[in-house]
Design a binder for these strands. Sequence first.
DNA 1: TGTGGATTGTTTTTGAGTGGACAAACTCTG
DNA 2: CAGAGTTTGTCCACTCAAAAACAATCCACA
Lengths: 169, 169
Amino acid sequence: MSALSRQAMAEHGADRFEASGTGGGEAPAVDFGPLAESLGFRLRLAQIKAFEDFFSAFAEEGLQPGSFSVLITIGENPGIRQGVLAGALMIKRSHMAKIVQGFDEAGLVERRVPQDDRRAVELTLTAAGRQRVEAVMPKFLAHEKASAAALTETERQTLLSLLHKLGGF
Amino acid sequence: MSALSRQAMAEHGADRFEASGTGGGEAPAVDFGPLAESLGFRLRLAQIKAFEDFFSAFAEEGLQPGSFSVLITIGENPGIRQGVLAGALMIKRSHMAKIVQGFDEAGLVERRVPQDDRRAVELTLTAAGRQRVEAVMPKFLAHEKASAAALTETERQTLLSLLHKLGGF
DNA sequence: TGTGGATTGTTTTTGAGTGGACAAACTCTG
DNA sequence: CAGAGTTTGTCCACTCAAAAACAATCCACA
């Protein structure tokens, strides 16, 4: 049964997705019941898997998905406020403070307090920071491509669009 | 521009998704750069949002998405092995031990050691556990429906199928 | 002017989740 | 049967991330 053909069946509320083991042979099937139809549940499973893949690919670089996205986004938005960055990436401000502190100490990010609002912090990549991003980017793009290998390009774009729409932003 | 119409544009690599603030008015737009096209990144965003929604809906019940899914899955698969459960829900065995311990102490789950393999633990809901699940289920289903309100039913099913396919199980 | 409230980032504390070492039980092979 | 290797769950130490309390600054309005 193809994944997309399930659509018609589901209208009758009669199907149940199951978890069969990934590779190893005789993993018992698990019935997810109503969870199988839950977007939140499926999102969680997909995201955990995506994170694991990212980790195993970038472990040696000492990179984590979260902080890597911070670095890239600062590069794309020089002078961005720390709170705005946190909001966009859905990272709590308290956590963002830690992350930025780490990057600052590592010399990858510069924090600048603007004169018109001395509470705020504006973030920019240092030369080392830009260099770091450029160094890792090719591997990142390759990883992206590989992680979407199970989908056609059209499916991938559809998935992106639907996630985008679901988030409402 | 509709979310789905972006598909054609993206082929030319010229578009950039942006993060506009959800509600409050003048939130500055943030350029995600290559991240906007990243499945892992979009998954993370969508999942964080889904979790937050779940939390704000179920805070008073003292329920968390992860442990709730454990409870439901035990209910759907009486006698399931603890390790099998952990594998299906992508929860590490060490963590599952903690979760199950909590449910056991709360009297919601019964742990039984089968005779044919005295290392293993088989899990079943107690009467109180079943009652708990039944009590929360209507609210959960309503929450699911509300959280998918931004999508049509067809889009929702497509999204489920694509997530399913992406995970490869 | 100056005072109360809101915003911005930091610090502290708490909990979720992981990794690794471990003990007990099982299996396979000689 | 005996031993090595594997599987299953548990415990402990640790990291990641969130919640809450906090300090500094800004803003609105009398």
